[in-house]
Write a protein that binds this DNA or RNA. Structure first.
Length: 590
RNA sequence: CGGGAUGUAGCGCAGUUUGGCUAGCGCGCUUGCCUUGGGAGCAAGAGGCCGGGGGUUCAAAUCCCUCCAUCCCGACCA
């Protein structure tokens, strides 16, 4: 009996999606006009093409077409995770506060954590990520080095109460994410797992048909050492990435992370006499530079920052911007913000705009690497309407910390090879982290090695935003008429459009074409609505089927259907009896 | 969190300033005719707690109070 079940069609029918559809049955309500709530193009097109509907701010229903895309992305992810030895599981979305308190993140995570109480008034959170749960699971089940390494992953809804949900699926509060966690005995094992995931991610995004780039990144709140982000390249992207113009070099980093090049040698200039000069009203770098006729590079910009521990003075060259991420890393602080006017007055004794490191008491001073290379520089005098000239580090002031704390810009030398850095915009769709023992230590996930020694498991975590990837694909691949899906993640491969459904010959020919394509395994939609051709064409372009097969009067007369490529607009005439092979060939070329 | 804006039919909007007939327009939807290669045309229809609650008034989409929702901008570069 049981064998019979296995041999039956149940196996063959166990495909994730059906490969055929009639638009008269398809639930894909398209809109002619752009809903007012949508700002970015992926959001607009997802709404217009009938892929999603909004339920609440940052919370969406995925309609059938969207779900097909998501399933395809998921499937590619599964195959690549499994290929690297990953095992899929599912974990709770509702997570008890205890675990989060144990890891310390109940307090650290802040308002982004969706919190709720049960009827007994116990605290819970909706999982924004699953480090706690998975580590707790593993600590209970893994006790020996023989059980390692372990790669476990899940694809589920995650929740973050964003301070400002926006851009449709690009920054939602409920979203689908794949997270894989690696568990290894040591750093070497972690390196192996990390590389596996780096390879897997490269494969995933390549297979999705996206132009992307892995970049070095900052590890942020999740913590850990090494980390790369996978960026889908799109001009509308929020993230700025810098990459070396030399392909062979390969350096690429998020601006948040991009290291500055080695400091140029100190210019040989005689140290001049420190002096105070009046600079009435000149409180920005630009104003001071104009007023004193010095280039901004000769000005030391002094910013006061407040952290949860202290107030610090931050020095960068006048033409540079502070990189707050680098800064908070250098200061080992959690929160960072520019000090208010009152604090500035209090500490420097002057209004905002006249702070300087000379004789600045009571706060630590942190300077960017470039500062030590300056001679005879200009700074604020800690006195209203006055600046100091001929200021020299060491001679006139000392700093407590020297570190790379500034933003790097396109055009600067590559920190690795010295060629020029270029800039691009990207959408972060994946990130891989080396966590080390950060979570295993606090949560007590350990194992015994061969010598019976108890050791912390070394972890890594690796996420892919599935719903964000779908939106990013649209940001990268669209035109005025609508979406242009890469074949691998398109909801369907082709749409057959009979120009007039009242023409029996056209209908018959379209049905034959549809039938042939479906039987050949091509996911095909037939637009059998009694609409005019223009309406169907518009919808086809909007939804973004990679291929459109038009069956009109010409087709009937010539026994040839017209295959149009969505991406290029290219049109080829194909005899009906060869339509499958031609379509397969065309899809393969896309 | 701060600031701004908006909320009227499925979608896009007018009407609100200066309260007053039965709340309008375009698209979409239904029915019929017609049309059929890029969102056609004609005709007849359906569809509204004017975001919720409370007030003022003879009378409220419109004025007042309050709550809610959505969107945008900002979060300080000395």
């Amino acid at each position: 009996m049981s064998l019979n079940i296995l041999n039956s069609d149940s196996l063959k029918e166990n495909t994730v999606w059906r490969s055929f559809m009639r638009t008269t049955e398809l639930f894909a309500p398209t809109l002619r006009e752009v809903p007012a709530e949508a700002e970015v193009v992926s959001h607009q097109l997802l709404l217009r093409a009938g892929f999603i509907r909004r339920e609440a701010a940052g919370v969406y229903t995925y309609l059938p077409l969207a779900l097909r895309v998501l399933k395809k992305i998921n499937q590619i992810i599964r195959e690549e995770m499994d290929r690297q030895g990953g095992q899929e599981l599912q974990m709770p979305i509702i997570q008890s506060a205890e675990l989060w308190q144990e890891s310390g993140r109940w307090d650290v995570y802040g308002p982004e954590l969706f919190r709720l109480k049960d009827r007994h008034d116990r605290d819970f959170a909706l999982g924004p990520t699953h480090e706690e749960i998975i580590t707790a699971l593993v600590r209970g089940e893994v006790s020996s080095y023989k059980q390692l390494p372990l790669l476990l992953y899940q694809i589920q809804n995650k929740y973050r109460d964003e301070r400002r949900p926006r851009f449709g699926l690009l920054r939602g509060r409920e979203f689908i994410m794949k997270d894989l966690y690696s568990f290894d005995r040591d750093e070497h094992g972690l390196q192996v797992s990390y590389q596996k995931m780096h390879d897997a991610y490269t494969q995933v995004f390549r297979r999705c048909g996206l132009r992307f780039r892995p970049v070095e990144a900052d590890s942020g709140a999740i913590g850990g050492s090494d980390t790369h982000e996978f960026m889908v390249l799109a001009d509308s992207g929020e993230a700025t990435i810098l990459f070396c113009e030399k392909e062979a070099c390969g350096y690429a980093a998020n601006v948040e992370k991009a290291a500055q090049p080695n400091v140029t040698a100190k210019p040989c200039e005689d140290l001049k006499q420190l002096a105070e000069v009046p600079t009435p009203g000149a409180h920005t770098v630009e104003e001071v530079a104009d007023f004193l006729h010095v280039p901004p590079q000769k000005i030391i910009k002094t910013l006061l920052y407040e952290t949860e521990k202290e107030v610090v003075a931050v020095l960068v060259r006048g033409d540079r911007d502070v990189n707050e991420i680098k800064l908070s890393n250098a200061l080992h602080c959690l929160h960072l913000k520019l000090a208010g006017a009152a604090t500035v007055q209090n500490i420097t004794g002057a209004r905002v705009g006249f702070a300087g490191p000379v004789n600045l008491k009571s706060v630590r001073i942190i300077a960017d690497l470039e500062i030590s290379a300056l001679t005879n520089a200009v700074t604020g005098a800690n006195k209203d309407d006055a600046h100091l000239i001929n200021v020299n580090p060491v001679r006139d002031f000392n700093v407590d910390i020297v570190s790379d704390i500034r933003m790097v810009q396109a055009g600067e030398p590559c920190p690795r090879c010295g060629s020029t850095l270029k800039e691009a915009k990207g959408i972060e769709v994946g990130q891989i982290f080396k966590l080390g023992d950060k979570y295993s230590k606090v949560l007590g996930a350990t194992y015994l090695d061969e010598s019976g020694l108890k050791k912390a498991i070394i972890m890594g975590c690796y996420g892919i935003g599935v719903t964000r990837t779908m939106a990013a694909a649209i940001e990268q691949n669209h035109d005025q008429d609508g979406i242009i899906w890469p074949v691998a993640i398109a909801p369907f491969h082709a749409v057959v459009v009979p120009v007039s459904v009242k023409d029996e010959k056209q209908t018959a020919m379209a049905e034959e074409t549809y039938d042939r394509l479906v039987k050949a395994g091509i996911e095909t939609v037939i637009d059998d609505r009694p609409e005019r051709a223009g309406v169907k064409f518009k919808d086809a372009d909007l939804i973004g089927y990679p291929l459109r097969i038009t069956v009109g009067a010409k087709a009937v007369a010539n026994e040839q259907v017209e295959v149009r490529v969505r991406k290029t607009g290219e049109v080829v005439m194909i005899p009906v009896n060869k339509v499958e092979s031609s379509v397969i060939k065309l899809l393969g070329q896309l």
